[in-house]
């Protein structure tokens, strides 16, 4: 089958590649662009481990064709922070034990990032509802919710201080 010329902006960087239309975005990110932060958990659109941001939406990248993503702006966990300069959410997950094995974490944090963009001061219920597309087998969610609420307060406090 003919390959398609695909252009993406990933974490602010322009990328071009040839891919079959049927290739899934998660495979393009992991195998062609070596961005292995987003994970493949269920492959059936349920677990959210593959969550990335596409054009300002949280999406399960196992359920998006490379062809559909042509022209899109994508943010992955690699685009949020780096080991020397962690994003507030990453730091908060570490401090509040929001992860154990860490498999769900990139998806959790990428999703939480979008959630806080849309709702900067969520209640606990809103966090739980907004994170409902991400499954975790380890933590029991309690500390994930705590990490996100703490990150939200920290971001809001920093913003108030700046104003």
């Amino acid at each position: 089958m003919t390959k398609m010329h695909i252009k993406l902006t990933v974490n602010g960087k322009a990328e071009e590649l040839l891919a079959e239309p049927r290739e899934l975005l998660i495979h393009v990110l992991r195998e062609r662009l070596n961005l292995t932060g987003a994970h493949i958990g269920c492959e059936t659109s349920h677990c959210g481990a593959c969550t990335v941001e596409m054009n300002g939406k949280s999406v399960k990248s196992c359920t998006v064709f490379a062809a559909q993503a042509n022209g899109a702006e994508i943010t992955t966990i690699e685009g949020l922070g780096s080991p020397d300069a962690l994003h507030v959410l990453q730091r908060s997950f570490r401090e509040h034990h929001g992860l154990q094995c860490g498999f769900c974490t990139p998806g959790m944090i990428t999703r939480a990032h979008r959630l806080l963009q849309e709702n900067p001061a969520p209640t606990e219920d809103e966090v739980r509802f907004g994170m409902a597309g991400n499954l975790c087998r380890c933590t029991g969610y309690q500390n994930i919710v705590k990490s996100i609420l703490a990150a939200a307060s920290e971001i809001n406090a920093a913003q108030e201080a700046a104003e």
């Binding site: 659109s45 949280s58 999406v59 399960k60 359920t63 998006v64 907004g130 994170m131 409902a132 597309g133």
Partner: peptide, 9 residues
């Protein structure tokens, strides 16, 4: 319907 990620798409 579904979850936030599914509802965006």
């Amino acid at each position: 319907i579904a979850d936030p990620q599914v509802r965006y798409m």
